[in-house]
Design a protein around this nucleic acid. Structure first.
Lengths: 111, 111
DNA sequence: TCCATATTTCTATTATCATGGAAATGAATA
DNA sequence: TATTCATTTCCATGATAATAGAAATATGGA
């Protein structure tokens, strides 16, 4: 990951509505949730939700999947893992300090 | 960690200068770096650096230590670890998905 | 105390982001 | 093809953040 992608991801998450959306999607996992259901559950106007989903998508933090008339949004674990790796990169000059990397889906998991 | 602390931390990191500062401090580890040296190395005015360090401090992402006339800044690994834990909390509804937590200092490390 | 140096606060200017109603787009069904 | 419903784009308004020069503050040595 390079710095501009990291900044985009961090900025996307640094907002109450978007962070809430993202955490819901992290907890839901692969299946995802349609946009309208998110708007209803979070009690925000469609236009506002759409704006925030676009921000998250632009940061590659969410993945979309169309199914009939619904667009399902789900968390992009690859980006989240890359972001965490970026933040902890070369921690303590490589000295042993207990760091382990984070992986949140089975495909990229090492542990 | 609660959502407002997470937002503060994410917003603090979502900026090129601050992210660069933070990553330098992560890599340096416990000893830290004095403010002036950071300003010189990153080629930014003292006032600008001070502004950004304050933002990071406000988000509890850095710790300060005074030594003679110098103020040493170092990364606050506890906050970073809490933030990563917050982002991955209840990942995939608790189903096994390879997630492990991140710890970046010896005191809080489990591994 | 007086000076040199390290760092922070003050300040104004400029730029970027968030909100939500209304209109537009896109997809499935009759 | 008309209709319905899900979602997105448009737009104007209001709010917040970034920058860096200059002045202020704080620390230790002469």
């Amino acid at each position: 990951m390079e710095i501009n992608a990291a900044i985009k991801a961090l900025a996307a998450l640094a907002h109450e509505t978007r962070l809430t959306i993202f955490r819901v999607l992290v907890q839901v996992g692969e299946s995802g949730v349609p946009a309208g259901q998110l708007a209803k559950e979070l009690g925000i106007p469609n236009a506002t939700l759409s704006f925030h989903l676009k921000e998250l998508a632009h940061a590659e933090l969410v993945i979309t999947r169309q199914e009939s008339r619904f667009i399902y949004y789900s968390a992009n674990f690859a980006t989240m893992n890359a972001l965490m790796g970026y933040l902890t990169e070369n921690c303590c000059s490589g000295m042993p300090c207990g760091i382990v990397e984070v992986y949140c889906d089975e495909k990229t998991a090492k542990y």
